[in-house]
Design a protein around this nucleic acid. Structure first.
Lengths: 163, 163
DNA sequence: CTGAGTCGGTTCTGAAATCGAACTTAATTT
DNA sequence: AAATTAAGTTCGATTTCAGAACCGACTCAG
């Protein structure tokens, strides 16, 4: 399967991965959320080759996750900023960071801490139910066919016993 | 930068991506959460080549995300199951799916729906603060150096003005 | 007891992606 | 005039991936 075929799958995960399912892309997004905006700044921080960086920034821009904003005209220069669509990736990024904090931090502890401005506390992110507010656990979630389903390859195995 | 170097970075995101930062790995994990357990079942559902699948399952097992469990002896056969460490990736997987639901679903709507058993409602996942319970927004989160930090390449740009 | 099928892989070759380094273009600074 | 900055592009060498065939241990049907 190729990257552009991924986007056609009847699965929201596959479609999302067609945009962000690459390690450099996700590291670029991490830096975006940390306030990095310029080509050379990404390159210095990430250590990625310029060719790859150029390609990934173009893809993210075409996908509507980043937008190019000019900050001077002669010579033309611009910076990359997260769109609303890109800002919506915050839960993805923070969930990934949090798993690393819990399971990949060495004895020295986690490399960064997060503080919630509105309550003032250091916190961990928790994924919870929009309806009742309780934390979500995989055993307590049913996966059902939705209106946009075109095949049942991505339903749970327990829901496909008829075939 | 190579994959094994990623694991040494002073950044929880980079460390996590050294384990799951690959599109096939994440699709394998999606299927794990949907109840897929066996090599050929993964191969049928994903359309991945057997060589890649073999490699990724080995990596996930070595990383402690999956464990091999024998279900018969002659010939030796086993299945792959999520460990506790693997189950902790649920917020990552669900956040990715949810972003796809919001931003990549076509006119037909999302391919699958999620129902929370304990409250009975169809829901969206929300990332919230462990301390006050409010939804987290990137503008309201401060990133601070933690005890395990070994350099400041992964701090926000605003926290590095001294250098 | 032969032949097909199952399961969990490995091996092979050509195609594609990535790496590192150098080069380009337009403008400013020394 | 020469160096520097910013945002890329280009190029050859290396690495990874895709697609297909093959393998080994066993079971089952005839």
């Amino acid at each position: 399967m190729k990257w552009d075929e991924l986007a056609e799958e009847s699965c929201s995960m596959a479609r999302t991965l067609s945009v962000i399912g690459d390690r450099w892309t996700l590291l670029i997004l991490r830096d975006c959320f940390l306030g990095v905006r310029r080509f050379d700044a990404f390159q210095d921080r990430l250590g990625v080759t310029r060719g790859i960086l150029s390609d990934r920034l173009k893809q993210l821009t075409e996908a509507g996750v980043l937008k190019k904003i000019a900050y001077q005209d002669r010579p033309p220069r611009h910076e990359y900023k997260l769109t609303a669509k890109g800002l919506d990736l915050y839960p993805v990024v923070l969930s990934i960071v949090h798993w690393g904090d819990r399971h990949m931090a060495g004895d020295a502890g986690r490399p960064v801490l997060h503080r919630h401005q509105s309550c003032g506390h250091l916190f961990d992110p928790v994924l919870s139910c929009s309806e009742c507010g309780d934390p979500l656990r995989p055993q307590e979630v049913d996966v059902l066919p939705g209106p946009g389903r075109t095949d049942d390859r991505h339903l749970p195995v327990t829901a496909r016993r008829s075939g």
